[in-house]
Design a protein around this nucleic acid. Structure first.
Lengths: 159, 159
DNA sequence: AGAAATTTTGAATATTTATTCACATAATTC
DNA sequence: GAATTATGTGAATAAATATTCAAAATTTCT
């Protein structure tokens, strides 16, 4: 259907320009522009366009096109976790507020680098040699948090 | 409330790692991790974290952090450019009797070397990687002494 | 310490959004 | 062209999410 393509483009355009707090508001704007559709269709359109509804700074909501960078980052992160699944990890141990990871030779740097890129981390810092990583825990960090945090990088990790 | 902060961090962490198609699923995962909250609170948490629900490629939905990352990256970039003016120093943090200095890549060795040559030092030893320095404090050392000592090397340093 | 103000929360509910179902419209194949 | 298949749509509704309201918990201010 021809109308749909035009409509999708109109939706994208209007969302990029102005903000709407919900689908009904957006629907109204579209109706005023001459597009005749219902909330059901709009919902489907938004899904197809991959439009997300994001809370805004002023306590409201807005429709956005999430940045591609986000997705890419995520999928990269996933890939990393996959490729490491079998790889260099050997052991994890704790002493005081320090953790030590042993790896197969040469893997320490890579794994430490992955750990460093975690968005939220219980570590104050990491230091890698060839087959050993030192991790200094934040004061409020627990072994549990550490294990949780490391899971995406080393699936199934445990002390 | 302390729990809330921890919970928000947990939510952020779990969302960055895995995907959930709705709040109830996410809620379940959080409950299993020991967080006791209801959908109402989760909704508020997500709003506060500015988490958006985005349609995915496979016709499903997922929670994401949209523009958030971009802003963070930007502000970090700014900080870096500031401290870069002087040298490679980025940050200083403490945990227990350890201090950690983060530097721009490659600067750790140089700065650590400078620290090692200090005539009077509150440190028992230092260990440098590429962008991180671990410093073990003498038992009587305080954060204040450390800052004082480091000032000649890193002017204007503070935690 | 207590009182006052602020924040956090759950239950219930209002609001919003997604989907089901039925039908219509367009595209494809014979 | 007719038959078949795929796609698009609205009305109704299911499902998901946000908010209201009242009560606790926490912090701030005497």
């Amino acid at each position: 259907m021809k109308n749909k393509k035009i409509r999708l483009e109109a939706i994208e355009a209007i969302i990029r320009v102005s903000t709407f707090r919900n689908q009904d508001d957006l629907l109204l704007a579209l109706n005023e522009k001459g597009f005749s559709l219902t909330q059901a269709t709009l919902s489907r359109d938004l899904k197809q366009l991959k439009v997300a509804k994001q809370p805004t700074a002023n306590g409201d909501y807005a429709y956005i096109f999430p940045a591609d960078t986000q997705e890419k980052t995520k999928s990269i992160a996933r890939d990393v976790s996959h490729s490491f699944a079998a790889n260099g990890f050997l052991s994890l141990d704790f002493s005081g507020n320090m953790a030590v990871i042993k790896t197969r030779p040469g893997y320490a740097g890579g794994i430490a680098s992955d750990i460093d890129t975690l968005p939220i981390s219980p570590f104050l810092g990491s230091l890698a040699g060839d087959d050993t990583i030192f991790l200094l825990l934040k004061e409020q960090a627990t072994k549990e948090t550490v294990l949780e945090t490391l899971t995406p990088i080393i699936p199934g990790i445990r002390k």
